[in-house]
Amino acid sequence: SISSRVKSKRIQLGLNQAELAQKVGTTQQSIEQLENGKTKRPRFLPELASALGVSVDWLLN
């Protein structure tokens, strides 16, 4: 799922939720909701993929 991929990649990069949120241009709460499965397809998906160094396709599939 996107939530597990985001969380595992974030941890692999040594980032906390607030640091990832800053790179993406969103809030820590938005990252938390995404990782908890409350958000399925965030509006900041391209920025998120870029910050994590992955493709949008990788996040979604």
Score class of each variant (00 low, 15 high):
Ser1Thr: 14
Ser1Ile: 12
Ser1Leu: 11
Ser1Gly: 11
Ser1His: 10
Ser1Val: 12
Ser1Tyr: 11
Ile2Met: 13
Ile2Tyr: 04
Ile2Val: 10
Ile2Ala: 04
Ile2Leu: 15
Ile2Arg: 03
Ile2His: 03
Ile2Cys: 08
Ser3Leu: 04
Ser3Ala: 15
Ser3Gln: 09
Ser4Pro: 03
Ser4Arg: 11
Ser4Phe: 11
Ser4Val: 12
Ser4Leu: 13
Ser4Met: 14
Arg5Thr: 05
Arg5Tyr: 04
Arg5Gly: 03
Val6Gln: 00
Val6Phe: 02
Val6Tyr: 03
Val6Ser: 06
Val6His: 01
Val6Thr: 08
Lys7Ile: 11
Lys7His: 07
Lys7Cys: 09
Lys7Gly: 03
Ser8Phe: 15
Ser8Arg: 10
Ser8Asn: 12
Ser8Met: 15
Ser8Cys: 15
Ser8Asp: 10
Lys9Glu: 03
Lys9Gln: 09
Lys9Gly: 04
Lys9Ser: 07
Lys9Tyr: 05
Lys9Leu: 15
Arg10Asp: 00
Arg10Ala: 01
Arg10His: 00
Arg10Leu: 02
Ile11His: 09
Ile11Thr: 09
Ile11Trp: 07
Ile11Lys: 10
Ile11Leu: 14
Ile11Glu: 11
Ile11Ala: 08
Gln12Phe: 10
Gln12Arg: 09
Gln12Tyr: 09
Gln12Thr: 08
Gln12Asp: 08
Gln12Cys: 10
Leu13Gly: 03
Leu13Asp: 03
Leu13Cys: 07
Leu13Pro: 00
Gly14Ala: 06
Gly14Gln: 07
Gly14Val: 03
Leu15Ala: 02
Leu15Tyr: 10
Asn16Cys: 07
Asn16Ser: 15
Asn16Gly: 11
Asn16His: 07
Gln17Cys: 10
Gln17Phe: 07
Gln17His: 09
Gln17Ile: 11
Gln17Trp: 12
Gln17Ser: 08
Ala18Thr: 11
Ala18Ser: 13
Ala18Tyr: 14
Ala18Trp: 14
Ala18Glu: 12
Ala18Gln: 12
Glu19His: 05
Glu19Tyr: 04
Glu19Phe: 04
Leu20Gly: 01
Leu20Asn: 01
Leu20Asp: 02
Leu20Gln: 01
Ala21Ile: 01
Ala21Trp: 01
Ala21Gln: 01
Gln22Thr: 10
Gln22Ile: 12
Gln22Val: 11
Gln22Cys: 10
Gln22Pro: 01
Gln22His: 12
Lys23Trp: 08
Lys23Arg: 14
Lys23Cys: 09
Val24Met: 06
Val24Ala: 10
Val24Cys: 13
Val24Glu: 01
Val24Gly: 02
Val24Arg: 00
Val24Gln: 01
Gly25Trp: 03
Gly25Pro: 08
Gly25Asp: 04
Gly25His: 07
Thr26Pro: 01
Thr26Asp: 04
Thr26Ile: 11
Thr27Ala: 06
Thr27Leu: 06
Thr27Glu: 06
Thr27Gln: 06
Thr27Cys: 07
Thr27Pro: 06
Gln28Gly: 06
Gln28Met: 12
Gln28Ser: 10
Gln29Ala: 12
Gln29Met: 12
Gln29Phe: 15
Ser30Leu: 13
Ser30Ile: 13
Ser30Met: 15
Ile31Asp: 01
Ile31Leu: 07
Ile31Glu: 00
Ile31Arg: 01
Ile31Gly: 00
Ile31Cys: 03
Ile31Lys: 12
Glu32Asp: 10
Glu32Arg: 12
Glu32Met: 12
Glu32Thr: 08
Glu32Leu: 09
Gln33His: 12
Gln33Tyr: 11
Gln33Ile: 08
Gln33Cys: 11
Gln33Thr: 08
Gln33Ala: 15
Leu34Met: 06
Leu34Asn: 02
Leu34Ala: 03
Leu34Ser: 02
Leu34Gln: 01
Leu34Cys: 04
Glu35Trp: 02
Glu35Gly: 02
Glu35Asp: 01
Glu35Asn: 04
Glu35Phe: 02
Glu35Arg: 01
Asn36His: 09
Asn36Thr: 11
Asn36Asp: 11
Asn36Glu: 11
Asn36Ile: 10
Asn36Val: 10
Asn36Ala: 14
Gly37Ile: 03
Gly37Ala: 07
Gly37Arg: 05
Gly37Asn: 07
Gly37Phe: 05
Gly37Met: 06
Gly37Lys: 05
Gly37Asp: 07
Lys38Cys: 13
Lys38Trp: 15
Lys38Leu: 15
Lys38Ala: 13
Lys38Ile: 15
Thr39Glu: 11
Thr39Val: 14
Thr39His: 11
Thr39Cys: 15
Lys40Asp: 12
Lys40Val: 13
Lys40Gly: 11
Lys40Thr: 14
Arg41Ala: 11
Arg41Glu: 11
Arg41Leu: 15
Arg41Ser: 12
Pro42Asp: 03
Pro42Met: 10
Pro42Val: 14
Arg43His: 13
Arg43Cys: 11
Arg43Ala: 14
Arg43Tyr: 15
Arg43Ser: 14
Phe44Trp: 14
Phe44Glu: 04
Phe44Asp: 04
Phe44Val: 03
Leu45Val: 08
Leu45Gly: 04
Leu45Phe: 06
Leu45Ala: 06
Leu45Gln: 01
Leu45Cys: 03
Pro46Lys: 15
Pro46Cys: 13
Pro46Tyr: 14
Pro46Asn: 14
Pro46Gln: 13
Pro46Val: 14
Pro46Ser: 13
Glu47Thr: 09
Glu47Ala: 14
Glu47Cys: 09
Leu48Asp: 00
Leu48Ile: 07
Leu48Met: 05
Leu48Tyr: 02
Leu48Phe: 02
Leu48Gln: 00
Ala49Arg: 00
Ala49Thr: 04
Ala49Val: 04
Ser50Trp: 13
Ser50His: 12
Ser50Val: 13
Ala51Ile: 10
Ala51Arg: 03
Ala51Gly: 03
Ala51His: 05
Ala51Glu: 05
Leu52Met: 05
Leu52Ser: 02
Leu52Lys: 00
Leu52Arg: 00
Leu52Asn: 00
Leu52Gln: 00
Leu52Pro: 00
Gly53Arg: 07
Gly53Gln: 09
Val54Ile: 06
Val54Ser: 03
Val54Cys: 06
Val54Phe: 03
Val54His: 01
Val54Asn: 00
Ser55Gly: 08
Ser55Thr: 15
Ser55His: 08
Ser55Val: 05
Ser55Tyr: 04
Ser55Lys: 07
Val56Leu: 13
Val56Asn: 04
Val56Thr: 09
Val56Gly: 04
Val56His: 05
Val56Tyr: 07
Asp57Ile: 09
Asp57Pro: 07
Asp57Cys: 13
Asp57Gln: 12
Trp58Asn: 03
Trp58Phe: 07
Leu59Ile: 09
Leu59Pro: 04
Leu60Phe: 08
Leu60Pro: 00
Leu60Arg: 08
Leu60Ser: 07
Leu60Ile: 13
Asn61Trp: 12
Asn61Cys: 11
Asn61Pro: 08
Asn61Ser: 13
